[in-house]
């Protein structure tokens, strides 16, 4: 069965007429992606909120594409009339990451920006908010970046209980102790 995308097409038309330099993609039912460069994000969000009725802000998240040397910021907004999740995606440079402050449109963006600033080290010029959000006295690389190795950090900082450092498969030892055979289906998922 072919799904019809009537309201998605309508949104496509509206956005395409209003903005020229954006790429719009209807991904699946009730999901529309907009790829824009970073200076277009604020106008698109404002337009969608004021003109198209996308007055509910769902999500702001950041993805680290380390191989392209880019961060991707994803703004997800939702409209109570069309029920479409509109993704506004933008890519910013990873070396000196800055992004426009958008917390005057929706106040809750404040919290998201605080988190992203702390976890990815992205600066939002003009953004007022407490510096520390989740972490305290953090001196390392912002932890959610892909180049931060959490296991290495753990080995450097914390103690491990003895007997756990090898992280070996203990099923054989348990089987020997209980005198039962390892079933065949379990052998399949062995760690080797």
């Amino acid at each position: 069965m072919k799904t019809s995308f009537i309201k998605e097409e309508l949104l496509f038309q509206q956005l395409a007429t209003a903005f020229e330099n954006v790429v719009i993609e209807i991904v699946r039912k009730e999901t529309v992606f907009v790829y824009a460069s970073k200076e277009f994000v604020l106008p698109i969000l404002l337009y969608a909120k004021e003109k198209l009725g996308y007055n509910s802000f769902s999500h702001l998240s950041c993805v680290d594409w380390i191989e392209n040397d880019e961060f991707e910021l994803v703004y997800i907004i939702w409209s109570p009339e069309t029920k479409i999740n509109l993704f506004v995606k933008t890519r910013i440079d990873r070396q000196n990451p800055t992004m426009e402050n958008t917390d005057m449109i929706w106040r809750q963006i404040n919290t998201y920006q605080r988190e992203i600033r702390e976890m990815f080290g992205i600066e939002f010029p003009g953004f007022v908010g407490e510096k520390e959000f989740i972490l305290e006295d953090w001196e390392d690389v912002p932890p959610m970046r892909r180049d931060f190795d959490t296991l290495e950090y753990v080995n450097d900082t914390f103690f491990e209980r003895e007997g756990r450092e090898d992280k070996q498969d203990v099923r054989e030892r348990i089987a020997k102790r209980s005198g039962e055979e390892i079933p065949d289906f379990a052998k399949k998922y062995s760690r080797e």
């Binding site: 972490l135 959490t150 296991l151 950090y153 753990v154 491990e160 209980r161």
Partner: peptide
Amino acid sequence: INGGMYWDSYNTIKL
């Protein structure tokens, strides 16, 4: 006791 399922988390103590 030993970090449990957070054995590789940078923010929780293990022991």
